[in-house]
Amino acid sequence: MKKTNIKTIAVDGLITSNPTFKLVLGTCPTLALTTLAINGIGMGLAVTFVLICSNLLVSLLRKVIPNQVRIPAFVLIIATFVTVVRLVLDKFMPSLYSALGLYLPLIVVNCIILARAESFASKNCVLYSMADGLFTGLGFTFALTVMGAFRELLSSGAIFGVKLWDFEIAFFSSSAGAFFTFAIFIALFSYIESVVKKQKKIKDYAELVKLKEQSAFVGTTEAK
């Protein structure tokens, strides 16, 4: 059992259980909004905000909410914060609001938020829950931004609207391109993870051999 502290929460949320690449949750906005890197950031930060707030409230109320009605209660909490985000974006960032469009109200049914509320915030203290919301949200934002930048670069030759070269593959801005990009990113993530694991194994083994040699050496000198 892993000990819960801010560092493990951060590593978990960002890398080892990254919501997009590792758990493959919240796929709908990931596929739909990664045509531009800026949309990825916008969506990611909106989800992060909702995650932090809902985790905070769920964690505060975890002893008050009866077990039988916890899912409707969580959904109500999430829906409230999504409404807040929607009204704020509508007022202050109309361009982002129209870019996110339909997917903004759909944050309510984003599995990441309900999953974190159910599996983390309803069992842990307020500070850890907020940290978990922040880092899971940032992991999601990171994934969306990287994928958005990749697709934007290949489909229009630009990143964040800055033109780099005149090289365009329309495939990557289409819906088929979204599935393809997501597939190669998940595969790449899994590959990198396996390489890191292998190196760690080799390192551990080398240390083990070293220890054994040392003990053998100690053994022989004692025998003498």
Binding site: A176, F179, F180, F182, A183, A187
Partner: peptide, 23 residues
Amino acid sequence: INKHLKGFPIAMITACFIAMAFY
């Protein structure tokens, strides 16, 4: 299938071809 492509990635690539057909 390559073990890194198994599961979700290959499902997404399959979906990619369906998406092309619907396009």
